[in-house]
């Protein structure tokens, strides 16, 4: 199996997580699934159609923003400035949460392929539990439930909840990545006298990282969008800055247009970066 093939499998696995399947056995038997990734499409040079749509949307969004700022400085210039004040919080939450999610995901992924049944069980229950509860509910639950015991700062609660939630998805990505590494790699390592732990550390995980990097990029983008939910925790991210502005000026439509444009532009830039990353990984075999 070459690395390209492995990446395809990872992607299929990642898509499956967000798949709406026509009937429950479809995925296993026929592949008559409808792929509905909730992530953005990743524009790559090879995929003309997606790439063109990406360009149209991206430059459309840029031009619209420029037009608004230049020709309607009142109120748009002020709205942009206000909303962008939330960008650092959005990025802070996203970056720390993705780091947390990767750490949790690595352990969950390793746990799911562990030879010990009870560890598999714990990881399995964690993944099921988290995936079955809406993120907004988790966020509010952790904030208020944990907050009734200890004092939790909004930022910590947000990063914690997003890490725990995305950690479950990340765990599945890591598991798929590990399982995509040919079995012979583990066998060769074991046959040389390495322990399973050493084999994972020196042989399996380094190869897994390369394979799941694009999937992690996708999760990062999803995370950035979902981080808008943290505005319910009185964190001043892009969305909350916008809503505060609305409560002062009642310019709902204008403000939300700007908020949407900001998220859109950030997401499109990131998705292109992930695309570039994938292209590079392919080139380096």
């Amino acid at each position: 199996m070459d690395s390209k093939e492995i990446e395809e499998r990872i992607k299929a696995e990642a898509i499956k997580q967000h798949t709406i399947s026509v009937d429950p056995n479809a995925g296993k038997e026929k592949n008559t699934t409808i792929n509905m990734t909730d992530g953005v499409l990743i524009p790559k040079k090879g995929e003309k159609h997606v790439f063109t749509s990406w360009r149209l949307t991206f430059f459309g969004a840029l031009i619209l923003s420029a037009v608004l700022i230049i020709f309607f400085p009142d109120p748009y210039r002020q709205i942009f400035i206000t909303c962008l004040r939330g960008a650092p919080v959005t990025f802070e939450v996203t970056v720390f949460s993705i780091i947390g999610a990767v750490i949790i995901g690595t352990f969950t992924g390793l746990g799911s392929v562990s030879k010990r049944r009870w560890i598999n069980m714990i990881c399995g229950v964690y993944v099921e539990l988290i995936r079955g509860i809406p993120l907004l509910v988790q966020l509010i639950f952790i904030y208020y439930a944990v907050g009734s015991l200890f004092h939790v700062e909004g930022m910590i609660a947000a990063i914690f909840s997003l890490s725990v939630c995305f950690g479950a998805y990340m765990g599945e990505i890591v598991r798929a990545g590990i399982q995509a590494i040919p079995k012979g790699q583990m066998e060769a390592a074991i046959a040389l006298g390495l322990t399973r732990g050493q084999a994972f550390r020196y042989i399996i995980l380094p190869q897994t990282v390369k394979v799941i990097l694009p999937a992690i990029g996708n999760e990062f983008i999803s995370m950035l969008k979902d981080s808008s939910l943290v505005s319910v925790l009185s964190l001043e991210d892009i969305l909350r800055c916008g809503r505060m502005y609305i409560s002062r000026t009642f310019l709902s439509l204008e403000t939300m247009l700007v908020v949407a444009l900001i998220y859109l532009i950030i997401t499109l830039v990131l998705s292109r970066l992930v695309g570039l990353l994938e292209e590079r990984l392919h080139k380096n075999g």
Binding site: A188, G193, I203, Q207, K210
Partner: peptide, 18 residues
């Protein structure tokens, strides 16, 4: 300990590509 003393060569080489 046994595996340290008994080397193995596989049909599909199984070298570590990274």
């Amino acid at each position: 300990k046994i595996r340290e003393d008994v080397g193995m060569v596989f049909q599909s080489f199984n070298l570590f590509p990274h």
